[in-house]
Computed example of a mutant assay.
Amino acid sequence: MTALFNFQSLLMVILLTICTSTYAHYVFPGIIDRNKENYVVGVFWKCARVGERLSPYVSLACLIMAGSVFMGQW
């Protein structure tokens, strides 16, 4: 099953995109800020903004997702 048809996998992909974009913006701020008007890279800029401004909620969602994946394997 792909991540588009499984809701939990889709949420995991979205969370990983937010976390990766935030880290990439922290390490290379010029690349993401310069291309924020571009449609493809603009999505990563928006995800980086969500990760920066809502970081406590994103981290809580990552912990919940990790717990659900860990508990699902037992």
Rank of each mutant, 00 (worst) to 15 (best):
P29V: 03
H25N: 10
C19N: 10
T20Y: 02
E37N: 13
Q8G: 05
N38H: 14
Q8W: 07
V43F: 15
M12C: 08
T17H: 05
T20E: 02
V50F: 14
G42M: 06
T17A: 12
F7Y: 14
L16P: 04
T17F: 03
G51W: 00
I32F: 02
E52L: 11
F44R: 00
V27T: 10
T22E: 01
E37G: 06
V43M: 13
Y23A: 15
Q8S: 12
T20K: 01
L15K: 06
L16I: 11
I14D: 02
V41K: 04
Y39W: 11
R49I: 08
I14Q: 04
T17S: 13
N38D: 15
S9N: 11
I31L: 13
A48D: 03
L11Q: 10
G51L: 01
H25K: 12
I18C: 02
A48Y: 01
F7P: 02
R49A: 10
T20V: 14
L16Y: 07
C19P: 00
N35C: 09
Y23T: 13
C47D: 02
F28V: 04
G30R: 12
N35F: 10
Y23W: 06
G30A: 06
Q8E: 15
I31D: 08
V13S: 06
E52N: 15
I14C: 07
C19V: 12
V40T: 13
G51D: 00
E37F: 08
V13C: 09
T17R: 01
F7W: 14
K36A: 05
A24D: 03
A24R: 03
M12H: 09
G51Q: 02
V27L: 11
F44K: 00
S9Q: 13
Y39L: 11
K36E: 04
E37C: 07
L11P: 00
A24W: 02
L15C: 09
M12I: 04
I31W: 09
Y26P: 00
C19S: 13
N35W: 04
C19E: 11
G42N: 07
I14G: 02
A24Y: 05
F7H: 13
F44M: 10
Y23G: 08
S9I: 05
D33M: 05
H25A: 13
D33H: 07
N38K: 14
W45K: 04
C47H: 01
F44D: 00
F44G: 00
Q8Y: 08
S21D: 04
N35E: 11
I32Q: 00
W45Y: 15
C47R: 00
I31F: 15
G42W: 07
C19Y: 05
Y39P: 06
V40H: 12
W45F: 12
R34I: 07
M12S: 12
V13E: 10
F7R: 11
W45H: 14
I31Q: 11
F7K: 15
P29I: 04
S9G: 01
Y26I: 09
